[in-house]
């Protein structure tokens, strides 16, 4: 999966998240949108909701079950959940052919 495809996965999930949970105050669907942490749009509860929408979207596209919050994600020096772009970058990394998730 290339960066553009991964970005689309995250943005689609964000659109779905907004539709289900944030109709009144949608999270801006843009690459530089900050998700979690300082200045982020999501608290921990909404991060959970959002991440598994991303996982579902990934599964629909790849046909494989991908865990975005396993020990590898938690042990990254920089959290993959800081922004839409950092999450897309992480998806590219774990979907790479030599990744244990592939």
């Amino acid at each position: 999966m290339n960066q553009q495809e991964a970005l689309q996965v995250v943005l689609d999930a964000l659109g779905e998240f907004n539709q289900i949970h944030r109709r009144d105050q949608p999270v801006p669907p843009a690459p530089d949108t900050r998700l979690f942490g300082p200045g982020g749009h999501l608290d921990s509860l909404n991060l959970v909701r959002f991440v598994f929408l991303v996982e579902e979207n990934l599964q629909r596209r790849t046909g494989k079950s991908v865990a975005l919050t396993d020990e590898r994600a938690m042990s990254q020096r920089h959290s993959p959940f800081i922004s839409v772009t950092t999450l897309a970058d992480y998806i590219v990394k774990i979907c790479a052919p030599n990744s244990p998730n592939s």
Partner: peptide, 11 residues
């Protein structure tokens, strides 16, 4: 500037 985190109702 980013918007602040918004909590969902936790009732």
């Amino acid at each position: 500037m980013s918007e602040p985190a918004v909590s969902t109702s936790n009732s």
